[in-house]
C-alpha cells in the first residue's frame, strides 16, 4: 500500500465538514474481500438526505444492495468505485430519474428533509425541482443560451415578467462562472459553446431553479483538464449554498472536491468516511485495492 503518494496528492486545506465525527473503526482493518457490510460512519449531524436500505433491481438484476448513508447539508459527497458498481444508479435514485426506466424497481427509504421521496404524496416534478442534476455528457437543449437557463424557471412559473427572468438568467450564469464568456452571445444556440462551457451552462440551468441539492454524474468525464479544473472550482464554491453529490471515476477529483467519500463495489456500499480518511487510511481491503490502483 502506498498511502504516501496519495497523501501527497490530496490537498487538505482544513475545509472539511467540522461536524463529521471520528471514524469508529479506525483501529481495525478488514481484509476479507467478501465482507459486504458497510464500513465507516454513515450518519452526519445535519443531514439533508437520509438513505436507508436502498435496493435497486433492473428486471431480475439486483443492481444495488442495502445501501444506507446520509448526505449532509452544504457538503460535497463523492461516490467512487469501478464502473458498474452502482454509484450512478444510486445517484439517479436521489431525484427519481430511475422512474424513466420501466424495468427499474426500488425498495428502501430515501428522505429529503424528512419526506420520503418515494412516497405517493411526493410529486416527482417538485422533487426534481428541489434536487437538480448535471449529467456526464453536457446536454444543452437545442435552444439559445438564454433559453437554456430560462427553461427551468419558465416551466415552474418562478418569475413574473421578462425583467425578472433576465435577472435570474444573469445571476445563474454568473454563479456558474459563465457570464463573462456568454454575455454578448445569449441568443446563440447552447450547442455552439465548447464542451466545458456547455457543462457550466448545464450547471447554470440547474442552479436557475434554485434547487437544494445538486447531483452530478461524472460531470467532468467528457472534458479537458482546464475545463475540469474550472468545474471543480465551481463545485467548491457552490457548496456554500447547495448540497452536492458527485459521482466520479477519478479518485483525484473526489479527493480534491469532496468532504466525504463513499466507495461502491459491485452493487454494495463498501466504505464511507471523510475523504482524507478514505484516501489515507481505508479500512476495507477492497477500498484500499481500488485507491491504490489494483483495479478500477
Amino acid at each position: 500500500m502506498n498511502t504516501m503518494t496519495i497523501e501527497a496528492r490530496v490537498p487538505l486545506d482544513g475545509a472539511l465538514n467540522p461536524n463529521a465525527r471520528e471514524v469508529p473503526l479506525s483501529s481495525t482493518q478488514i481484509t476479507d474481500y467478501d465482507h459486504r457490510q458497510t464500513v465507516g460512519k454513515i450518519t452526519v449531524d445535519n443531514p439533508k438526505m437520509l438513505c436507508r436500505e436502498v435496493n435497486v433491481y433492473y428486471s431480475e438484476k439486483h443492481a444495488l444492495r442495502q445501501v444506507s448513508l446520509d448526505i449532509g447539508a452544504n457538503e460535497v459527497i463523492a461516490f467512487i468505485g469501478p464502473s458498474g458498481c452502482g454509484k450512478s444508479t444510486f445517484l439517479r435514485c436521489l431525484n427519481r430519474m430511475n422512474d424513466t426506466i420501466a424495468s427499474c424497481r426500488i425498495t428502501g427509504q430515501i428522505q429529503l428533509d424528512g419526506d420520503n421521496i418515494y412516497d405517493k404524496n411526493i410529486d416527482v416534478v417538485q422533487l426534481r425541482a428541489r434536487v437538480g442534476m448535471v449529467f456526464q455528457k453536457p446536454n444543452p437543449f437545442p435552444k439559445s443560451i438564454y433559453e437554456n437557463v430560462a427553461y427551468g424557471p419558465r416551466i415552474h412559473g418562478m418569475v413574473n415578467g421578462k425583467a425578472e427572468l433576465d435577472e435570474l438568467v444573469q445571476a445563474s450564469l454568473e454563479r456558474a462562472g459563465l457570464i463573462k464568456e456568454v454575455e454578448k452571445r445569449m441568443d446563440e444556440p447552447g450547442t455552439s459553446l465548447s464542451g466545458g462551457q456547455q457543462q457550466r451552462l448545464c450547471i447554470a440551468r440547474a442552479i436557475a431553479v434554485n434547487p437544494e441539492v445538486i447531483l452530478m454524474d461524472e460531470p467532468c468525464s467528457a472534458l479537458d483538464p482546464i475545463a475540469t479544473a474550472k468545474i471543480e472550482e465551481l463545485i467548491d464554491e457552490l457548496r456554500e449554498n447547495y448540497t452536492l453529490v458527485i459521482v466520479t471515476h477519478s479518485m483525484q477529483q473526489a479527493a480534491r472536491v469532496s468532504q466525504r467519500t463513499a466507495y461502491f463495489h459491485l452493487g454494495d456500499l463498501i466504505e464511507i468516511g471523510e475523504t482524507d480518511q478514505i484516501f489515507t487510511n481505508p479500512k476495507h481491503k477492497l477500498t484500499e485495492d481500488y485507491i491504490t490502483g489494483r483495479f478500477g
Binding site: 416534478v125 425541482a129 442534476m133 449529467f135 444543452p140 416551466i155 431553479v209
Partner: peptide
C-alpha cells in the same frame, strides 16, 4: 433526461 431532471 436534462429536461426531466429540471422537474419538467
Amino acid at each position: 433526461d436534462g429536461s426531466y431532471a429540471l422537474g419538467a
